[in-house]
Design a protein around this nucleic acid. Structure first.
Lengths: 197, 197
DNA sequence: GTGATAATGTACTGGTGAGTCCAATGACCA
DNA sequence: TGGTCATTGGACTCACCAGTACATTATCAC
């Protein structure tokens, strides 16, 4: 990375990150070598270390950032507008559809099981993502309480935590089984419990 | 393993499995080499290959089996006797206590995120465990429906799947954060939803 | 006890993968 | 146009690790 970065350099760097992300999704982090990434992105090891002087760990952190950024973006604008039961249902459908489509290559699964454990920095990225996601759900629940859709006696923080746990577990099972049934069930039960059914 | 196994040999084999399990819990599968396992278990590489002629993969499968067996056993007798709300609460408390105590070294987390992805055989062990666990929960829910504690309109399969997803996600978050709050919340919300609160 | 076989110790091999070195090429700016 | 620095290519080193070969010691059956 020297000091500055030309347009061409920035493009190469981005190509490396995305190529690495794809390889990790396809074959797992432990089977993805720097040589693989170089071959996939039409670069060489010298470029990899040129753009990521701290080596593989730094590259993986960049990949984790890239994945994390897209996970919340994928759920917008629904996730930030959970102001009616229809909106909750729309968000739920978006999540299930997205993860059903991604299947075993889903970004959240890769982030939590492959990239997260790889380094402390990546673990923090995964933790920050989870915290932000949970915060948005909590906001949605509290807003629904203020508008009278959800009873005040509901523990909003616990409900948000339970939803997040259900999503993460559903995705974990999706990774192993390829089925989004558990994810969908967790969301349905969680939302039904908010509605007081 | 040759053909037979003396008492001494069986003990050594078991020591290898447990030592490997501990190392993987402590430092992750990718940082655990056969040399590490040999050193830890006061053996040598020749023993490792003597008892696991198919090599590291077979050893890891044995570790996965060992971990999986203890996960359900840890929840007994509660898990097989979910016949009253008190029993459900006892089971919930047992799970939360156990995982809080295990913290980041929890067996289920290791099995799903470290061992499971390592080979198809280990993945099957993890999948079988999940299926069995879910079956026991389903039995509990259906029994409670028959005894009139849970309304017949509740989708028992979906409720069991949601509980499993919450547990798996709670454990995943426990691995990253060290906190069992999400696990506890998921169980509380899931059980409350069964009770119709 | 003795022979067969299980259990263990040690030294080695071959491959792989992260990271380095240095030379060459290309782009931008004075 | 010439110089500087970013960019790229390719060969190389070094460490680690799974797996092997072979020799030695302990154990069990008869």
């Amino acid at each position: 990375m020297g000091t500055t970065l030309t347009a061409k350099g920035a493009a190469t760097r981005q190509r490396i990150i995305q190529g690495a992300a794809t390889l990790i999704q396809d074959q797992g982090i432990s089977s993805t070598s720097l040589d693989d990434i170089a071959a996939r992105t039409q670069t060489g090891k010298s470029q990899l270390f040129h753009y990521f002087p701290e080596g593989k760990t730094a590259l993986l952190v960049a990949v984790a950032e890239f994945e994390a950024a897209s996970i919340l973006a994928d759920q917008q604008p629904y996730l930030s507008n959970l102001t009616s039961w229809d909106a909750w249902q729309d968000w739920r459908n978006r999540v299930v559809e997205r993860y059903e489509a991604q299947g075993r290559q889903c970004r959240l699964g890769v982030l939590t099981t492959q990239l997260g454990p790889a380094s402390a920095a990546s673990e923090k990225i995964a933790a920050d993502l989870q915290a932000e996601w949970e915060r948005l759900l909590l906001e949605g629940i509290q807003g629904m309480q203020q508008s009278g859709h959800i009873r005040p006696s509901v523990d909003a923080a616990a409900a948000a935590a339970a939803l997040i746990a259900g999503i993460y577990g559903g995705v974990l099972i999706l990774l192993a089984s390829g089925s989004a049934y558990h994810l969908a069930s967790a969301l349905d039960v969680g939302i039904a419990s908010l509605r007081g059914h």
